[in-house]
């Protein structure tokens, strides 16, 4: 690691003021950032640790929605009675991320800010039609992920929470890379107030909605209706773990399993 300064502000305002410095970087759980620094792939002058800001932690109900603070750890989402009773698929997803030690540090804000193409949370943010709340504005989940490791966040903008509306039914199925546990393909299916959503992670450079499957499932919510929907491999990821064709095939399999799991 290159040398850097370390700051642990107590307030969001203080953190935001520091984050305005373009050489500074926000530190959340560190599960992605610290390995990146070790490989000298980033050289921030200063790390701004959000761990001292109480208002960024915790899970609360607002109306019917579940609002999860940016610094809430994966383990806390997986273990939350509120999440489990309102959106069980979201608690399941959090419990499938990485391993216990990663879940004891990694946060929802860090995961979605990082926008890894194989990360799990993006599937839930898009699949449930969630809203990303920052210190400056509210960003619809559909507009948040803009490309490979790219988001709608402006430089220095800080995610403070994610608001998830409940779903009538929802399920997440992932085909895991057995070594890293990241998604080779993960599909989040939900029946929401705004219609059926099918969000795919792992397969492409960024999470996307499978609109053909959404249309078919809106007519009849059963695994059979998407059996003949073909996912094109064009533009999908191809690497040592899986070819684009295999990933395209897995999108169909995981989507059918997720619909089945919705019951």
């Amino acid at each position: 690691m290159y040398a850097f300064e370390y700051q642990k502000p107590k307030s969001l305002a203080d953190a935001a003021a520091r984050a305005a410095n373009e050489d500074a970087k926000i530190l959340a759980g560190g599960m992605t950032l610290i390995p990146t620094l070790k490989q000298r792939l980033a050289r921030p002058s200063e790390l701004i640790d959000l761990g001292g800001i109480a208002e960024l932690k915790g899970i609360r109900k607002e109306g019917n929605d579940v609002v999860i603070g940016a610094m809430t750890r994966h383990a806390d989402v997986a273990a939350s009675d509120l999440v489990r009773s309102t959106i069980p698929a979201l608690a399941d997803l959090a419990g499938m991320i990485g391993d216990p030690a990663v879940r004891h540090r990694g946060t929802i804000g860090g995961s979605i800010a990082n926008a890894d193409p194989a990360a799990d949370y993006p599937a839930a943010v898009v699949g449930l039609g969630a809203t990303v709340i920052t210190n400056q504005r509210q960003i619809p989940g559909d507009d948040f992920f803009t490309g490979l490791f790219e988001t709608a966040l402006e430089p220095g903008e800080i995610i403070t929470a994610v608001r998830f509306p409940p779903a009538q039914k929802a399920a997440y199925m992932k085909f895991r890379n057995p070594a890293s546990r990241y998604a080779i393909v993960g599909v989040f299916v939900a029946q929401t107030a705004g219609g059926v959503r099918v969000a795919v992670t792992g397969a492409g450079p960024s999470v996307f909605r499978q609109k053909e499957m959404e249309a078919a499932l809106s007519k009849s919510f059963s695994p059979d209706v998407i059996k003949d929907v073909k996912q094109s491999p064009d533009g999908l990821n191809s690497d040592i773990h899986a070819s684009a064709e295999y990933r395209a095939h897995l999108v169909g399999v995981m989507a059918r399993r997720a619909v089945e799991k919705c019951g």
Binding site: Y6, G30, I34, L47, P100, A101, H104, R105
Partner: peptide, 9 residues
């Protein structure tokens, strides 16, 4: 909580 001490400052 169990944590990887190589991935925390």
């Amino acid at each position: 909580d169990s944590v990887k001490s190589c991935t925390i400052l």
